[in-house]
Design a protein around this nucleic acid. Structure first.
Lengths: 152, 152
DNA sequence: CCTTGACCTCAAGTAAGGTTGAGCAATTAC
DNA sequence: GTAATTGCTCAACCTTACTTGAGGTCAAGG
C-alpha cells in the first residue's frame, strides 16, 4: 500500500486531516520538503506527519505560517522538531500566549470601565488605544489625531 | 472651515485618525451613509465621528466589519448607537470577549500539559482539537481523521 | 487666471491561507 | 486492458480589510 520510499500526499492528508491542496501550499511556503518518486510524485516520511502536526498546533496557538517557518529554519539543517526542540519552543509559545491573554484581559477591564459610560470619544475612552487592537493583521497606518475635548 | 452641511471626508479622517480611503471603504460596507453636497462631495455629521469610533472600538474588541454592520442594522432606522445602545452592546461584547479569553486559557492549560510531552500526536495531544483554533478565519474544511495509535 | 490641494470614481494590488479548476500523466482496481 | 483514482502543474479565485493609482472634477488661494 505505502509505496516504497514513503507516503503519498493523499496518505499524508488522511493521516493529518489536512487537505491535499493545503499540504502542497505548505510546501510552497517551505514547511515541508518531500522527496519525489522517479515519476515525480511526492513521497513523505513519517517525520512529516509530525512536522505537519507541529504546524497545525502552532497555528492553533496563533502563529502564522511565516512564523512557523522561522522556527523550522532555526533548527539544525531544517530538521523536524525533536522532543527537546518542542520543549523549548512550547515554552516560548506559552509566554507569547500568556501575553496575548494578558492583553485581552486588559482590554476586558477597560471595557468594563466603559460599559456604563457610552462616551465613545476617541480621546477620553480608555478603550481606544491605537497600539493593541486584536484584529491586527496586515499593514494599515492607523494613527490617532487630536479629537477635540467634548467633540464626541 | 466646515462647509455648511457638515464635515468633509478629510475632516472626518482627521477627527477619527482613519485614512480617507478607509472611510470610503466603510461606506461601501454600509457602515456610514453620508449625504452629498450639490457637487457630489460627501458631507458627514458629528454623529458619524461617534459611528466610526464605534467601528474602531468594536474592531479592537475583535469584531469583523460584517459583524459590526449587523449591530448597526439591529438599531432603529440604522441610527448611530446611543448611550443606552452602547450599554447593551458593550455588555454582549464583554461576554464574547470573556469567552475568547476563556478559550485561550484552556489552550494555555493544554499547552502546559504538553510542554514536557513532545508527542505531537494528533490523537494523543490535547492541544489538537479541530474546533478551537485561534486563527480561525475563512473557510477551510479542517477535519481530524484517525491517526493510528503510536503512529506519531 | 492659474495652480494647488482635496475630492470623485473605478480598477487593481496587498497579505494570509488556502481552494478550485483545467489539462495531462501515472497508478490502482477489476 | 481499460476505467477510475490519484497525482502533477499552473493559474485563477475567495475572504477580510484596506491602499494605491489613473484619470478627472471642484474649491480655495494668490
Amino acid at each position: 500500500m505505502a509505496p516504497k520510499g514513503g507516503l503519498t500526499i493523499g496518505q499524508l492528508a488522511a493521516r493529518t486531516g489536512l487537505a491535499v491542496s493545503a499540504i502542497r501550499f505548505y510546501e510552497e511556503k517551505g514547511l515541508v520538503n518531500p522527496d519525489r518518486s522517479e515519476t515525480g510524485q511526492r513521497r513523505y516520511e513519517g517525520a512529516d506527519i509530525r512536522r505537519l502536526s507541529f504546524v497545525m498546533i502552532s497555528q492553533k496557538l496563533g502563529f502564522s505560517l511565516a512564523e512557523i517557518q522561522k522556527l523550522f529554519r532555526g533548527l539544525p539543517d531544517g530538521r523536524t522538531p525533536t522532543k527537546s526542540d518542542w520543549s523549548r519552543i512550547s515554552k516560548s509559545f506559552r509566554t507569547s500566549l500568556d501575553a496575548r491573554i494578558h492583553q485581552m484581559e486588559l482590554l476586558r477591564d477597560k471595557l468594563d470601565g466603559c460599559i456604563g459610560c457610552g462616551c465613545l470619544s476617541l480621546t477620553a475612552c480608555a478603550l481606544y488605544n491605537p497600539d493593541d487592537r486584536i484584529g491586527d493583521r496586515g499593514a494599515g497606518p492607523r494613527y490617532l489625531l487630536g479629537d477635540e475635548p467634548g467633540g464626541d
